[in-house]
Simulated assay, not measured.
Amino acid sequence: MTEEQIRHARALLTHPDATVASIARLLRVSRSAIYKYVPELEDGGRPAVGASTGRSRLGPGA
């Protein structure tokens, strides 16, 4: 993932309805890439608004 994609993923993960799967589809990367480059998600945590790191889930059906 590029630095821009990582920043975008982290920003999207601040949204309560965001899922890793939907973010991965949007950025055209695998879910495993999201988990690799946003390691905070492994703990099940979500980034705070404005945080530079973090993971969360995006949208239903993801």
Score class of each variant (00 low, 15 high):
A62R: 15
S56H: 12
A51M: 01
H8F: 06
T14V: 13
H8S: 09
T19N: 10
Y35R: 08
A21Y: 15
G54E: 04
V49R: 07
I34D: 00
G50F: 01
L13H: 12
L12P: 01
V29F: 04
A21M: 15
S52V: 07
G50P: 01
E40M: 01
H15G: 03
K36Q: 14
E4H: 05
P16A: 14
I6D: 03
A33N: 08
S32Q: 13
P39Q: 06
G61C: 05
L12Q: 06
S56V: 04
P16K: 11
A21C: 14
H15P: 00
T2G: 10
D17V: 12
A48H: 07
L26N: 08
P39A: 06
L13M: 15
Q5L: 13
A48N: 05
S22M: 13
G45E: 03
V29G: 04
L13Y: 10
P47M: 00
R7Q: 08
D17T: 13
A48Y: 02
A9Y: 04
P60W: 12
S30Y: 02
Y37E: 10
L41A: 13
D43W: 03
G59F: 14
S56K: 08
L27W: 03
D17K: 09
H8G: 01
T19S: 15
S56A: 15
G54Q: 02
G54R: 01
A24N: 06
Q5C: 06
R28K: 15
T14R: 11
P16F: 08
S22Y: 09
R46Q: 04
V38D: 01
Y35D: 08
G61S: 11
A21Q: 15
L13V: 09
D17S: 10
R28D: 14
R7L: 07
P60K: 14
P60H: 14
P39R: 07
A51D: 09
A24R: 09
G61R: 14
V20R: 08
A48P: 01
T19H: 12
L26T: 15
E42V: 08
A18R: 11
P39I: 05
A18G: 02
V20M: 12
G50V: 00
T14K: 07
